[in-house]
Computed example of a mutant assay.
Amino acid sequence: MSNSNLSYFNSPALDMKIVMGDLNANVCSDNLGFEKAMGKHGCGSMNENGKRLMEFCSSNDLIVGGTIFPHKDIHKKTWYSPNGRDRNQIDHLMVNGTWRRSLQDVRVMRGADAASGHHLVMAIIKVNLRRTGKKKNMLQPRFNVERLREQKKERKFWITEETWQAIDRRKEVKKQVVTARSDRLKEKYKTKYQEANKGVQKKARANQRAFIDNLANQAEESAKKGEQGKVFQLTKLISGKYRGNASAPIEDIQGKLLTTEAEPDVRWAEHFNEILNRPPPTTQADIQEAEADLEINLEPPTRQEILAAIKSLKTGKAPGLDNLNAELFKEDPDLAAQLLLPLFSLIWEGKKVPDDWSEGIIVKIQFQRRDL
């Protein structure tokens, strides 16, 4: 049994389960014997894979979304052959019967420029969740500091303007293919679209190679200058973000797999208790007295010192318990320094650091090993 099957059967019974993909299964409009697995709005005639799909859906309480909603055939058939004559509904999206009412619509989006013989399939799902009540001692909501940054179009920045123009031209040809009335015009525009698609892919590959070469040269120059931070940023930009599995299984000290929701939290508490709460050292440290006393400024902090400290803050860091990011202070350093000066002066005169400043948050970062 594959990992996908194991994930499906091991998931909680009340969760919404969605199965979708190119299944190469034709389903028809006759749902006799499979009333719970499909509707009456399928296309074509059922093949062997379609029968297997219906048996799988019937035994696992799934329903094929593309057969429920009435649409024109052009909005239900998901695949067309290279010659343009054969069209079938072989890409499907299924949802478990418990969440059938949450599925609002399923239809084909023919206008999407996907450069494929398959059309995109869009599903509209509306989920109404029940409120569980307000939790006590909840942390303050985080500020969306991304809004402070310059808003840019979500385009791949390594693609040149010339390539984007070629992509726009390809989209126009795609529209001509979809709206063509006669088979002769459709074949003509398909040939034109294939040529435009080849040109776009060739330009995009050239842009990507030039972009990677440029980053490699920058990283090499930064390594020669000893700028390790910039080397790390460039390496992260090339390799992309790592998306680890935050809910990976955890084992206890004896190697037993923890399965319930409460057991991993208890194991994490034991793990940090073993690491952080160690006995004091048996031998005292031998600290030599300084040869000369350092000159320390004992005057209260000034506005200029606070302003300099704000400007030196690093962005992109996680906030503390107050959920105040460095970006919020650096957005208007003068105003932030003006607001912080009375607070720092009061703390300086009172000679007591607030208790909140001595607290921290422990973030668990799990690697490939499951045992702690």
Rank of each mutant, 00 (worst) to 15 (best):
M1A: 14
K352M: 13
V173R: 03
K224P: 04
G21R: 07
F157T: 15
P280L: 11
V95A: 03
K330D: 04
G240P: 07
G255F: 07
S116N: 01
N273T: 13
V173D: 06
M46T: 14
P141Q: 01
A262F: 09
Q366M: 10
F329P: 00
L328W: 07
M46V: 15
V108M: 05
L341T: 09
G42M: 03
L321T: 10
L307F: 09
N96I: 00
S4P: 14
D332L: 10
R278M: 14
R130P: 08
D86N: 13
G39K: 01
E251V: 09
D252R: 00
N137M: 06
N137T: 08
D30H: 06
N273W: 11
A37N: 08
M94P: 06
Q254V: 08
D334I: 15
K174Q: 12
P70F: 07
Q140W: 02
G199C: 12
N60V: 05
R209D: 09
Q228T: 15
L23A: 02
E161W: 05
N5M: 12
A166P: 02
E331P: 07
A309E: 14
A318K: 00
F143G: 03
P300R: 03
P70W: 01
E195S: 13
D183V: 07
W268Q: 01
F9P: 05
N325H: 14
N214C: 07
Q104E: 15
P264S: 01
A292W: 10
L103V: 07
Q176P: 04
N325S: 09
R107L: 14
S81H: 08
N277L: 11
K314M: 04
G21H: 02
L339I: 12
N245A: 11
E221W: 00
A248S: 15
D73M: 12
S59I: 06
H271P: 03
A112S: 03
A210Q: 15
S58V: 04
T191K: 15
E227Y: 10
E359I: 03
E289M: 08
D265W: 14
V178S: 08
T160G: 11
K190Q: 13
A337C: 02
L321C: 02
G199H: 09
T235W: 05
Q151P: 15
M46S: 07
H41R: 11
K230V: 10
Q140I: 12
G255M: 02
F56V: 00
T259W: 07
L258N: 09
K136V: 13
Q89A: 08
N83K: 12
K126E: 15
D15Q: 06
F69V: 00
S59D: 13
I296D: 09
P281W: 06
N277T: 11
K224D: 11
K175I: 13
